[in-house]
Amino acid sequence: MNDILFGGFQALLAIAAAPLLLGWVDQCRAWLQNRRGAGVLQPYRVLRKLMRKDAVIAHGASPLFRAAPYVQFGAMCLAAAIIPVVSITAPLAAAADTIALVGLFALARVFIALAAMDIGTAFGSLGARREMLIGFLSEPALLMVFFTASLICQSTLLPTIVGTLAHRELVIYPSLAFAGVAFTMVLLAENARIPIDNPATHLELTMIHEAMVLEYSARHLALIEWASALKLMNFTAIGLALFVPWGLTAAAAGPQGLAVGIVTTSLKLASAGVALALIETVSAKLRIFRAPEFLATAFLLAVLGLLVHQLLGS
């Protein structure tokens, strides 16, 4: 019972802090680009503004269109409950493993892509197509990254993986180097970050994620934005759990342990945010036709990680 409460608390924390991480990344990007930026709390202000407005919905919208933001947001919340963000004991981690996690992201993607096609505008279907294009390459890549970790730890359950990786005698896994590079590429693509998509774009023809959600407004848009922030949070947390697993606490550690866990995790997230902003600042957006190449590279690197694991036996 204690475990569940503890895990639930951490999931809620992740959900609440997700816009903060997004704000932090944006702020870092602004600093790196010699801008002042809107402050780390800007995403919260945007959410509050959007929530208050009336939802404008196109005439041809079906119930699917209105349900999709809730499904997407719910899926991301569930993901937050599976991924160990602060502590190893995530509430639902024992019920769904990494493969289910990949399936969960796919579920969110399929819903939002279907919703994008619902109104029947040119941009919506264009965005849906592009999003699925990215998904069909990044999903297997993510799965292969998880497989590499799973082979090392003999488990597909995230808490077990993180536990094994964190409590080992300091062993270096060469295969994780491949997995790490591949995962970074997947993270950028999945979260509509710069080499693949531009979160701040206003040019319709280059948009991917934004093109899908063009028809959304008010609370629906707020949920989608929040879900995107949460997705970034989830992915960063996965990356930290797989590649920098130290500092996560267990439920048994009590409130003090929790506090320590929160502090270390915040520090790790903050530095991950800086790294992300740095990557985004130094790289240029790829043409859309180069995106499959980028993702195929990520996928094949992940596969290579698996191979290296098999070959070196470590």
Binding site: V171, I172, A177, F178, V181, L301, L304, V308, L312, S314
Partner: peptide, 20 residues
Amino acid sequence: PNWSSQLIHLGAALLLLSSF
């Protein structure tokens, strides 16, 4: 855990990674 051999393995993997 044999440090040096692990480091060499890591080096090997990085070499392969850079090749790719």
